[in-house]
Amino acid sequence: MRLNIFKFFVFIGLIGLSFSYPQLYSLRGVFDTATNVTGGILKKVPKYIPSVSEVWTLGKDVIAGYPFEIASELINKVCSGVNAIEAVQSQVTPDVNSMTLRLITECQNYTFPILKASEMWKSPHFDPSKKVVVIISGWTNTINESSTIYEIGKAYLCRGGVNVVALDAGQYVNTLYTWSALNVDEIGKILASGLVELEKVVPLENIHLIGHSLGANIAGYAGKYFTSTTDRLLPRITALDPARPCFNEGEKLSGIERGDAEFIDVIHSNSGVLGKRVPVGDVDFYPGGTGPLRKGCFSIVCSHSRAFEYYAETVYPGYENNLMAVRCNSLANLKRGFCTGRPHTMGYGVSTKLKGSYFSDPDGVFPFGLPDNHEKPDVTQCGLCHSEEAKKPLVKF
């Protein structure tokens, strides 16, 4: 029974791969790779397939998240194989001439070609005395339809004292996932060229990259190329549930890695499916543990989004310490009282001295941080445009 269920998910996964890799079955090497991968996973069936009683006790994490974790494992392995033999090329190659950066304010957005990034840095709407946050959203997210950019941007505008900039790489990550993944390296390289220009007008310590999903891996490559160009490290990259499928340490597509910036903080929220489970930063936070679903979520997309929602919450004034975490090796051990270290801040106010893995158990609705003894300020309207003349919101949906 277990083997038949597994074969079903392998079959579904291969159907999906046939759409992502149109050349798959015409390339014997790729087919052999897929066969080897499937055989290897089949040997580990007991590890992946729980018994009926285990399903009953594990609840929604297994029922709702488990099939996707198997499919993700298969896609990740096959993607690694085809990348290794360079069997697939992206059909939508990034063009530096069409990529832009957008400066976001409460009432107006200003767009500049990335090749002319210096025009943004010299714009009267840009304040070089303030810090700069560059937000990079993930797969299928265009700049006008990105919840990542909207939520984090709104929080930073509410806080004030910062230039909010978003990378518009939509047409290169709004395509088949495999093609989007193959574009990440080049997009990161292009972004790095803009950051080189930015450093000429803003102190390096004032630059902070924040990426979600594929955007986290783009940020990692931007850090790599910035260092190779300037021989200096970006001060901080925040990786929000960095994309897992196709990105593996030591392979052609490695994604974000420790060392891409002086300090990398990571928030994992859909571990093992859309997001990476393994630690990849200087400090890795696992709010809600290492399972595929977060509290209050019944889909992997909801859990994948939680990473940027958690982070955005900590940016709001008065919410900086909402989400605290303790160094531990699992959420279960934290709940059992085996990890008794001092709680540390996750998100906006994280200490750059932290190292290791940290766990917490946030709530399932905003504010996700557990309530304390005083009333939190209302942040529902701050960061939004209140001018009657303005007709457009922060980000148009």
Rank of each mutant, 00 (worst) to 15 (best):
S129T: 15
K130A: 13
K130Y: 14
K131G: 13
K131Y: 12
V133E: 12
V134C: 08
V134I: 11
G138T: 07
G138R: 06
G138A: 13
W139K: 07
T140Q: 15
N141L: 02
T142H: 10
T142F: 08
I143H: 03
N144M: 11
E145M: 08
E145T: 11
S147P: 06
S147Q: 10
I149P: 04
I149N: 11
Y150D: 08
Y150P: 01
Y150A: 14
Y150W: 14
E151R: 02
G153P: 06
G153D: 04
G153E: 04
K154H: 07
K154R: 14
A155C: 04
Y156D: 08
Y156H: 09
C158M: 09
R159M: 08
G160L: 04
G160F: 07
N163W: 09
N163S: 13
N163I: 11
V165L: 01
V165A: 07
V165D: 01
L167C: 13
L167T: 07
D168F: 04
D168A: 00
G170D: 09
G170S: 07
Q171H: 15
Q171D: 14
Q171V: 15
N174E: 11
T175E: 09
L176P: 15
L176S: 15
Y177H: 03
W179E: 12
W179P: 03
S180A: 14
S180K: 00
A181W: 01
N183C: 09
E186M: 10
E186R: 06
I187Q: 03
I187W: 02
I187T: 05
I187K: 00
K189L: 14
I190H: 03
L191C: 02
A192Q: 06
A192W: 02
A192R: 06
S193F: 04
G194T: 01
L195M: 04
L195A: 04
V196Y: 01
V196A: 00
E197R: 00
E197H: 03
E197G: 01
L198P: 05
L198M: 15
E199C: 14
E199H: 13
K200H: 08
V201E: 11
L204V: 06
L204M: 10
I207S: 06
H208Q: 01
H208M: 00
H208G: 02
H208I: 01
L209E: 05
I210M: 07
I210Q: 05
G211M: 01
S213E: 10
L214I: 05
A216E: 08
A219W: 08
G220C: 02
G220L: 00
Y221K: 09
Y221C: 02
G223K: 08
G223Q: 07
G223I: 03
F226S: 03
T227S: 14
S228Y: 06
S228T: 12
T230W: 00
D231C: 11
D231Y: 14
R232Y: 05
R236K: 13
I237P: 03
T238C: 12
T238E: 07
T238R: 02
T238Q: 03
A239R: 13
D241Q: 09
P242F: 13
P242Q: 08
A243P: 07
P245R: 15
P245I: 12
C246K: 15
F247A: 02
G250T: 11
G250K: 14
E251C: 12
E251G: 10
K252E: 14
K252T: 11
L253F: 12
S254H: 15
G255P: 01
I256K: 09
E257N: 12
R258A: 15
G259D: 11
D260A: 04
E262R: 02
F263V: 09
I264F: 04
